[in-house]
Design a protein around this nucleic acid. Structure first.
Ligand SMILES: [Mn+2]
Ligand SMILES: [Mn+2]
Ligand SMILES: [Zn+2]
Ligand SMILES: [Zn+2]
Lengths: 135, 135
DNA sequence: ATTATATTAATAATCGTTCCGATTACTGTT
DNA sequence: AACAGTAATCGGAACGATTATTAATATAAT
């Protein structure tokens, strides 16, 4: 990546972060590429990947292993839970408070040093839900 | 896969299931391949993948998207939570009871049809923990 | 402006997984 | 026991997502 030395600023990286900040859809690399391509006609996928990993390293962005074959990203770096629609695959934030007590509970059942946890809820999003009842 | 018609029996599939039943390490495809290769010298990776997906379809096996670049599998098909060591990457079952009430709680914060959830706990496993204090 | 080097675009390489065609192995029928 | 039908196999090619390489370009400091 960039061992030790300082980072410069680039239009591309600035826009990638900005784009992540103004959306709540947990975008994929490909989606971001499509979005920014008109603006940077010579944009390459490698640039997206490299900058996302720099931004992640800097703590400005979260990489989400969504359970699909591809990763998702978000600028919302605070801990929170996710809902994933099993029909359309969309991923949405849950406002639900984080249950740190679950870590304590987990500790009671092991001798592991449990530090954090992640919850993914699954089901049907509101859109897919109404589509289903419409037949 | 095999639409409608019945499955035959094969030594390979039988052994793949058996192997999964006698281990608790949530094996990767590659590990299973290494294990069974001596027993089936002409074994191919495709055979492991195909049979795991048949067994999964039959509900005898769970595919786990572990958050790594590769998938893991288990014959323990009941719902349960996992602990993942951030140092060595091992994955272990938690005896902790499943909190179905979390689904209800999640429903209060959305209009989604929340059906199930998954929890991954992270930290240091007992082995890595003791290695760390040993310096 | 000159310089040093971080960043880029383009492309090749890698990784885990799925797909394919030719061959082999089951299983039920004559 | 020979046969026919068709799953299951092997080996390798193809695939999609990601990472690595390299020469050209952009950025920031002097
Ligand atoms: Mn989120
Ligand atoms: Mn398990
Ligand atoms: Zn949906
Ligand atoms: Zn460990």
């Amino acid at each position: 990546m960039n061992s030790g030395t300082s980072y410069r600023q680039s239009r591309q990286r600035r826009r990638i972060l900005q784009l992540l900040k103004e959306t709540h859809t947990h975008p994929t690399v490909d989606w971001m590429y499509q979005q920014l391509k008109p603006e940077f006609p010579k944009l390459s996928l490698g640039t997206i990947y490299r900058n996302l990993s720099i931004l992640t390293e800097q703590g400005l962005v979260n990489k989400i292993k969504s359970g699909s074959t591809f990763d998702r990203f978000e600028a919302n770096t605070g801990t929170h839970y996710h809902f994933i629609c099993e029909s359309c695959g969309c991923m949405q934030d849950l406002e639900m408070p984080v249950r740190k007590d679950l870590n304590d509970e987990a500790r009671q059942f092991t001798n592991f040093d449990v530090q954090k946890h992640q919850i993914h809820f699954f089901g049907l999003c509101s859109d897919c839900r109404s589509k289903k009842t419409a037949d």
